[in-house]
Simulated scan of single mutants.
Amino acid sequence: MKRWLSTSFAIAVACTGALPVLAHADPVWDRIKSSGHLVCGAIPNDPIGSWVDPKTGKWEGYEIELCRSIASDLSTTMGKKIEPEFHETGWNTVVLDIQSQKIDIWPGMSATPERKNALSMVGPIYTLAMCGMVRPNFQTKSTWADLNRSDVRIATVTGTSVETAFKKTAPEATQITLAGYSEITLAVQSGRADMMGADVLRCLNVAKSAPAAFGGIVYPKPIQSLGSSAGVLKSADQFTAWLQKWSDEKRKSGDIKKMFMSVFEKTGLDPSKVPPEIQF
């Protein structure tokens, strides 16, 4: 009897061990596939990133185009039509909206330590080249070595990733941090600062909106870029893996840059001011 029980137990253990291990469910992937919708965050009046076209009532911007492209390629992967859907959010609520599953993704934000603790940060989905808007008559500095001198005064917005990047890349320059870009514009105009430190999107926008306030755009060489990642739910393992592969392929193929150039034309920004060596 004991021998029979022992043998039966061994067989049961062996059979149990042979059972396939069930994969960890991904609530985001499963919901997208079952609903046929990818819910993306959209921030109203976010310059270049996302806005509602008053003529059509449709969302536009590079964040919007990214979501449309992701949905299109998910359709191929999932074997069914996936429609992009846009849910209004804000910079102060986007992390909570992803955690509460009101939205599936926000495709462009800095991967700060706080965000990495709260979300899976995938990317970079795109990169933004660092640039400077210089004051009129400022002798243009074309390299980071030229800028990395105490007699060069660089103004950036306090507490931003741009501030951190400029302080790291040009530590010997005189760094001036101010509350916002309006204050920086005044600092450059008054001669208090030589340059506004920013990223390529900000520089193009300022060059369009306030051309008389600055002497032009400088992209110090070698080109340095800031990465922007997509925030998704931490438990979205399958979606995260797919999105990382998608991002790598799209950036390598140049498709991400094409999206940005298309949006620049829609917003009246001058794409010719972007050097060909700058990618996105």
Rank of each mutant, 00 (worst) to 15 (best):
R3C: 13
S6R: 01
F9Y: 08
A10H: 03
A10W: 01
V21W: 08
A23R: 02
H24I: 14
H24K: 11
D26M: 04
P27M: 11
V28W: 13
W29A: 07
W29G: 13
R31L: 06
S35L: 15
S35D: 15
G36N: 12
L38A: 00
C40F: 04
C40I: 12
A42P: 08
I43W: 01
D46H: 04
D46P: 00
S50E: 10
W51N: 12
V52M: 02
V52C: 00
V52K: 06
D53K: 06
K55I: 10
G57V: 11
G57P: 07
W59V: 05
E60G: 10
G61T: 03
R68I: 09
A71V: 09
L74C: 05
T76D: 15
G79M: 07
P84S: 04
P84K: 01
P84M: 02
E88I: 10
G90K: 05
T93D: 08
V94Q: 09
V95C: 11
L96N: 11
D97N: 09
I98W: 03
Q99S: 05
D104S: 04
M109K: 09
M109E: 14
P113H: 07
P113K: 09
E114W: 01
E114S: 04
R115M: 05
R115Y: 03
R115P: 06
A118D: 08
L119C: 10
L119Y: 11
V122Q: 08
P124H: 00
P124W: 01
P124E: 02
I125S: 06
L128C: 09
A129I: 01
R135C: 05
Q139I: 12
K141A: 01
S142L: 14
T143D: 10
W144E: 13
D146G: 05
R149A: 08
S150Y: 13
A155P: 10
A155T: 09
T156A: 00
V157F: 07
T160D: 05
S161Y: 13
V162G: 14
T164I: 13
F166V: 12
T169W: 01
T169D: 10
P171F: 02
P171M: 04
E172C: 09
A173M: 07
T174A: 02
I176C: 00
T177Q: 14
G180K: 02
Y181S: 07
S182D: 15
E183P: 05
E183L: 09
Q189R: 05
R192Y: 08
A193C: 04
D194M: 04
D194F: 02
D194L: 03
M196R: 04
R202I: 01
V206R: 02
S209F: 05
S209V: 06
A210H: 12
A210R: 12
Y219P: 03
P222Y: 00
S228C: 00
L233P: 06
S235Y: 05
A236M: 02
A241S: 14
A241Q: 14
L243R: 06
L243I: 10
W246S: 13
W246D: 14
W246R: 11
S247K: 04
D248R: 04
E249T: 08
R251Q: 14
I256F: 04
M259L: 15
M259G: 11
F264T: 09
E265G: 02
T267M: 14
L269E: 07
P271A: 12
P275G: 13
P275I: 10
F280L: 11
F280V: 06
F280E: 13
